[in-house]
């Protein structure tokens, strides 16, 4: 893609010249440009081959391994054991369902919270650049603190005996003898909270460029504020919605911090990540852990490609 763009630009520039010699030298320049682009790409390609492609192949190979004949724990031999995938799909069906269910809910909540926030920062305070920058910093500021630290802090804030939980109990959101930490709600809450900036920032970027004159034109053409939003603002901000939901949904589906027992979850809330963690580090069942990882990756890939196609964002640009 980069090479094509590079040489394409040169060819266009040179085609304006008509003399034969010029076009010949342009052709030479074209090849030179392609070589330069190729050289510039080498570090990136090397990096990808070394740190992405190799581990990926390694992962798939491990996912197909069979237990060693000796039966020793953690000993496996190379094989083509496709059964591993069927095994993990059945064994962890609940966790797989939970992962995507939580990811779906947390993405929706993050979108519902982030959209008005991004609209406020990107559109409403646009006239005051200083205020805009300040509100943007306010949105991002909590995320200068470590992800783990913030999640632990929420655990403290919401555990039994904390004043915040007391308030929630008093207003009836949580039963008086009930608890919050360890419930699916706590995990979805944590996931939503932790991934909000990944939703807000892409939304902000598209909404910041939203042409206010189109909103005025919509109002001028008899659209009430709700119609203006659904017919103009939302369709025009779809690129932000799509990238925001992808940037939250994909990492949330693979998250294992929020759902783990050490943070906001319990054994009843474990997601795919927790199972990979357990199989790999505790059970030393590397083929299962790998097969589950590959399965997660493949499912996300399929879901995302369906989503992007249906969202039809390519029409927008």
């Amino acid at each position: 893609m980069a090479i094509a763009g590079f040489s394409g630009g040169t060819a266009k520039g040179s085609s304006k010249r008509n003399s034969k010699g010029a076009s010949k030298s342009a052709l030479k320049g074209d090849r030179k440009g392609a070589i330069v682009a190729g050289i510039l790409l080498i570090p990136g390609l090397l990096y990808l081959a070394l740190f992405f492609l190799t581990p990926l192949v390694q992962l798939v190979v491990t996912a197909l391994e069979s237990p060693d004949a000796s039966g020793a724990i953690g000993a496996y031999v190379y094989d083509f054991n496709v059964q591993n995938f069927a095994d993990v799909a059945v064994k962890y069906s609940l966790q797989i369902f939970r992962s995507f269910g939580y990811a779906f809910l947390a993405t929706i909540f993050a979108l519902l919270i982030s959209y008005p926030l991004a609209y406020f920062v990107g559109v409403k305070v646009r006239r005051w650049p200083l205020l805009q920058r300040m509100t943007l910093v306010l949105v991002i500021a909590p995320f200068f603190i470590s992800f783990l630290l913030r999640t632990v802090a929420w655990k403290q804030l919401l555990s039994v005996g904390s004043p915040l939980l007391g308030v929630l109990q008093n207003i009836g959101l949580v039963p008086h003898d009930g608890y919050f930490i360890g419930t699916p709600a706590a995990v979805v809450f944590g996931l939503t909270y932790n991934f909000i900036p990944f939703m807000t920032l892409p939304l902000f970027t598209t909404l910041e460029r939203l042409d206010g004159r189109l909103i005025e034109a919509g109002a001028d053409l008899y659209a009430n504020p709700f119609k203006v939003f659904t017919k103009i603002t939302l369709p025009l901000s779809m690129p932000g919605v799509v990238s925001g939901t992808l940037l939250t949904f994909i990492p949330i589906a693979g998250d294992y911090v929020n759902a783990s027992r050490d943070f906001l979850g319990s054994s009843d809330t474990s997601m795919i990540g927790n199972m990979v963690d357990q199989d790999f580090l505790s059970n030393q069942n590397y083929p299962y852990a790998s097969a589950l990882s590959v399965l997660l990756m493949a499912t996300i890939l399929i879901l995302v490609s369906i989503y992007v196609r249906r969202a039809g964002t390519e029409e927008l640009l």
Binding site: D211, A217, A219, D220, L221, A223, L236, E315
Partner: peptide, 20 residues
């Protein structure tokens, strides 16, 4: 009254055509 309630239409300087 609000703009959408007025029997008035505008041809804007920037045209403001909906790109989508």
């Amino acid at each position: 009254t609000k703009p959408h309630q007025r029997a008035v239409n505008t041809v804007f300087q920037s045209y403001a055509l909906f790109p989508h």
